[in-house]
C-alpha cells in the first residue's frame, strides 16, 4: 500500500493549522472524508481539498509535498507512524509529539519540537528560534525524544528543555539552552553568545573551542566521563558528525559548571580542537 500523499495546489492566504495532516487523524478515513477535514485559518476554516490534492492510501506513512512556513503545527501531537514534509514547515512542527517520526525535508520555522515528549524529528534544513522549547508561558520545553537539526538553529535552542536530546549539526544562535532544566543538547557548529544562560541542570556539549562562556560558569577541568561516552555512543547513529565528536571526546572534554545565577547544577562540555 502506498503512503498517503498531500500535494500542495495553492498557497493559503495566511497561516493555517496543519495538525490534522498526520496518521492518527487520517487513519480509517475515506478520501472524501479527508478532503473535508478542517484547516483552521485566521477567520475562516479551509478544508484539505481547498489546498491539497491527495494520492495513495496508507495513513501510517503520510507525506506532504510543497508545504511552506504558512503551515503550522504539522505533526503536532504525532503519536506514531511517519510524517514526511517536503518543503518548509511553519512554527510548532511536531509540537508535543509522543511517538513516531517527523521528517522535515527543508527548513523549519520557530518552535520545532516544542514540548515534544518522544519520537524523532529530523530537520534536514535550518531551524528557527526556540527549537525544542515551548509555547510562551509554558514552564518546560521538550521533555523527551530526539530533535535532530542538520542545518543551523536560531536563538534559544533547547530553551527550558527538560528531557530528551537535541542535536544541532550546524551553528546555533544566542542563548542556547537558556533556562535548561535537564536533558542533553549537542551542538557541532559555532555557538552564539550566552550559551547556558540561567541553565539550572542538564548537559550542553559544544564543539566550539575557545567559545566564550558566561562568568557565572566556572571551569571544572578536563574530563573523560563514562556517562558522556555512553551518551555519545548512543547518539553516534545520528550521523558522522556526531560520531566524530564522540571519538574526539574520548580524549576528554573541558567541563564548566553553571549557571551559578540559577543554582549552577548544569554542565557545559567543550571539545578541544
Amino acid at each position: 500500500m502506498t503512503g498517503l500523499t498531500f500535494e500542495l495546489r495553492s498557497v493559503p492566504p495566511g497561516i493555517v493549522d496543519g495538525s490534522v495532516l498526520q496518521p492518527a487523524a487520517l487513519a480509517g478515513k475515506s478520501r472524501a472524508e479527508i478532503e473535508r477535514l478542517p484547516l483552521a485559518a485566521w477567520n475562516e476554516t479551509l478544508v484539505v481539498a481547498d489546498l491539497f490534492a491527495l494520492k495513495g492510501r496508507d495513513a501510517q506513512h503520510v507525506t506532504i509535498h510543497g508545504a511552506c512556513d504558512r503551515f503550522e503545527r504539522l505533526g503536532a501531537g504525532l503519536d506514531g507512524g511517519t510524517l514526511t514534509v517536503v518543503g518548509g514547515v511553519g512554527r510548532y512542527a511536531g509540537e508535543g509529539m509522543r511517538r513516531g517520526t517527523l521528517i522535515i525535508d527543508g527548513p523549519a520555522a520557530s518552535h520545532v519540537g516544542a514540548g515534544m515528549r518522544g519520537g524523532l524529528i529530523d530537520v534536514t534544513g535550518d531551524a528557527g528560534d526556540f527549537a525544542g522549547s515551548a509555547r510562551p508561558g509554558a514552564m518546560a520545553g521538550m521533555a523527551g525524544g530526539t530533535l535532530r537539526i542538520r542545518g543551523d538553529a536560531g536563538d534559544r535552542a533547547g530553551d527550558r528543555m527538560r528531557r530528551g536530546t537535541l542535536i544541532v549539526e550546524g551553528a546555533v544562535g544566542g542563548w542556547c539552552v537558556s533556562r535548561m532544566i535537564a536533558g542533553t543538547a549537542l551542538v557541532l557548529g559555532a555557538v552564539g553568545p550566552h550559551p547556558g544562560h540561567q541553565m539550572r541542570r542538564g548537559t550542553l556539549l559544544l564543539d566550539a573551542p575557545g567559545c566564550e562562556l558566561l562568568p557565572t560558569f566556572n571551569p571544572n577541568g578536563r574530563h573523560d566521563l563514562l556517562a558522556i561516552r555512553l551518551l555519545l555512543d548512543s547518539l553516534a547513529a545520528h550521523g558522522p558528525g556526531v560520531a566524530d565528536y564522540g571519538r574526539r571526546a574520548i580524549g576528554g572534554l573541558d567541563r564548566w559548571l553553571g549557571d551559578l545565577a540559577a543554582g549552577g547544577q548544569g554542565e557545559i562540555f567543550v571539545a578541544r580542537s
Partner: peptide, 14 residues
C-alpha cells in the same frame, strides 16, 4: 545581573 545574583546567593563565582 547574573553575577550579582550568584554573589548575593553566595555562589563561588569570581
Amino acid at each position: 545581573i547574573g553575577m550579582l545574583t550568584a554573589m548575593v546567593d553566595d555562589r563561588p563565582v569570581d
